[in-house]
């Protein structure tokens, strides 16, 4: 669909494991006869060496990591256009803007295709961009799609923004009927120049709930709240601050009653919070311990997530 063929070399820099991103791409690529390098994320210098030594032609990567890899190349004086054989990349697992796409395309000298998927629906592979890059085709032979008003559940008129609802049509192990993805998008009904009749959706425009995504992982504030509430010495108030797609900072007020003047205990508590959040969400947070009463107390629905990221 995007020109990948036998002879291509795909460097898969998504996390392998319970997160579905990496596996699905791995299976798909081997089916087409593409050579897969299961690099996983991280170890940027090695990633770049692999690209150079193995003549990688395609990347599967998150947008934030792609930006980082590109900046490391610049620092090292590597010119991807001359020194590498990269042709294209599949970006997914976190929302990103058209500007980010253009920036990465420009830095690496490649074509970037958006892909869409979610673990509940087999991971990535639900929707994919064709070479025209005007929205993602949803594989309508496998998935039935609707766009509904997130408040009422009623279908919105075609072309209007709403929550994407998907039904699997041929999944054996875990059929899902009218699964509410919480992803906001709209349907593009006009036929695509590429000739495929599968309808397209626009890139994901946001989330209909308070879930947020860090490092490609879906996180709900409730998960973090649950962890904090299970730890002795943490007061009620907390805040999650997001400055990038790569990390989150959790600000926590300590409980006056448990303070005994020992710094060791506080350090231990901080470590416990980090470890337990990591265990619950798969993402290792930064944690700041604050004096009680420092965080704003809001009435009713507290604003727990401060998202400073812009798309």
């Amino acid at each position: 669909m995007t020109g990948a063929e036998r002879g291509d070399i795909l460097q898969n820099s998504m996390t392998y494991g319970l997160f579905t991103g990496a596996f699905v791409m791995h299976y798909g690529a081997e089916k087409v006869g593409i050579l897969v390098i299961p690099a996983g994320p991280g170890n940027t210098e090695r990633q770049i060496n692999l690209m150079r030594d193995f003549g990688t032609t395609m990347l599967h990567i998150t947008p934030s990591y792609a930006l980082y890899v590109a900046s490391v190349m610049q620092d090292k004086g590597i010119n991807p256009r001359k020194d590498l054989k990269l042709k294209r990349a599949y970006l997914g697992a976190e929302p990103y803007s058209e500007e980010t796409r253009r920036k990465i395309e420009d830095m690496l000298g490649i074509d970037i295709y958006n892909c869409y998927g979610l673990t509940e629906m087999n991971g990535p592979g639900v929707g994919f961009e064709c070479k025209y890059k005007q929205g993602l085709h949803i594989w309508e032979d496998n998935f039935l799609m609707e766009v509904v008003n997130p408040e009422t559940g009623e279908p919105v008129p075609e072309g209007e923004i709403g929550e994407l609802v998907l039904t699997t049509l041929n999944r054996e192990a875990m059929p899902l009927i009218r699964y509410r993805t919480r992803d906001l998008t709209r349907i593009i009904a006009e036929p695509c120049k590429c000739g495929r009749t599968h309808r397209r959706i626009t890139r994901i425009l946001g989330r209909s709930d308070d879930m947020f995504i860090v490092k490609g992982v879906n996180i709900f504030p409730q998960q973090i709240e649950q962890v904090l509430m299970s730890i002795k010495g943490v007061a009620q108030n907390y805040q999650i601050v997001l400055d990038s797609y790569d990390d989150m900072t959790v600000k926590v007020e300590i409980d006056k009653e448990i303070f005994d003047g020992k710094i060791d205990r506080l350090i231990k508590m901080k470590e416990e919070i980090i470890e337990k959040i990591r265990s619950a969400t798969l993402v290792k947070p930064k944690v700041e311990l604050l004096e009680p009463g420092t965080l704003p107390v809001s009435e009713g629905k507290a604003k727990r997530v401060i998202d400073n990221r812009t798309i």
Binding site: K256, F259, G261, K270, L289, E291
Partner: peptide, 28 residues
């Protein structure tokens, strides 16, 4: 990110109650 300040003062019980009352996280 954080620290513990320790004091020895001439009127320790009084200082402790006072700081507590002022909302500090304090221990004796």
């Amino acid at each position: 990110g954080f620290g513990v300040i320790k004091f020895m003062v001439n009127k320790c019980k009084e200082a402790y109650d006072l700081l507590k009352e002022k909302g500090f996280t304090v221990s004796l």
